[in-house]
Amino acid sequence: SKTSNTIRVFLPNKQRTVVNVRNGMSLHDCLMKALKVRG
């Protein structure tokens, strides 16, 4: 089974995003990807 960790990230202006960290990806990469999608 694939394991994925879901991390809630609290952003300024009362924004919130959820990042799924996959195996083999660093938290930083996942964060940058999530913020790019939002931006």
Results as ranks from 00 to 15, higher is better:
A34G: 09
K36E: 04
L11M: 06
L31Q: 00
K36Q: 12
Q15R: 00
V9K: 05
N20T: 11
M32T: 10
K33E: 01
M25L: 12
N5I: 08
R22H: 11
V21F: 05
N13I: 07
R8L: 09
R16P: 01
S1T: 14
T3S: 08
N5T: 10
Q15P: 01
V9A: 13
L27R: 01
S26G: 09
T6S: 10
S1G: 13
T17A: 04
G39D: 14
Q15L: 02
V19G: 01
L27K: 03
M25R: 10
K2T: 07
N23H: 10
R16S: 04
F10H: 08
L35P: 00
K33R: 10
F10S: 11
S26T: 15
N23T: 07
F10P: 05
S26D: 03
R38P: 01
K36M: 13
P12T: 03
A34V: 02
K2R: 11
T3I: 13
V18D: 00
S26R: 09
H28C: 10
N5D: 11
R38C: 00
V19A: 09
H28R: 10
R38S: 02
K14S: 05
K14W: 05
V37M: 13
D29A: 10
G24C: 13
R8P: 02
K33N: 03
F10I: 02
G24S: 15
I7M: 07
R38L: 03
K33M: 05
V37G: 03
A34E: 03
S4I: 10
S26H: 05
C30I: 15
L31A: 05
K14E: 08
S4V: 07
I7P: 03
N5Y: 09
T17R: 05
I7N: 00
V37A: 08
G24D: 09
K14R: 08
D29E: 06
M32I: 10
K2N: 13
R38Y: 05
G39E: 04
L11P: 00
K36D: 05
T6K: 07
D29G: 12
T3N: 09
H28P: 01
T17N: 02
N20H: 13
L27M: 12
D29N: 13
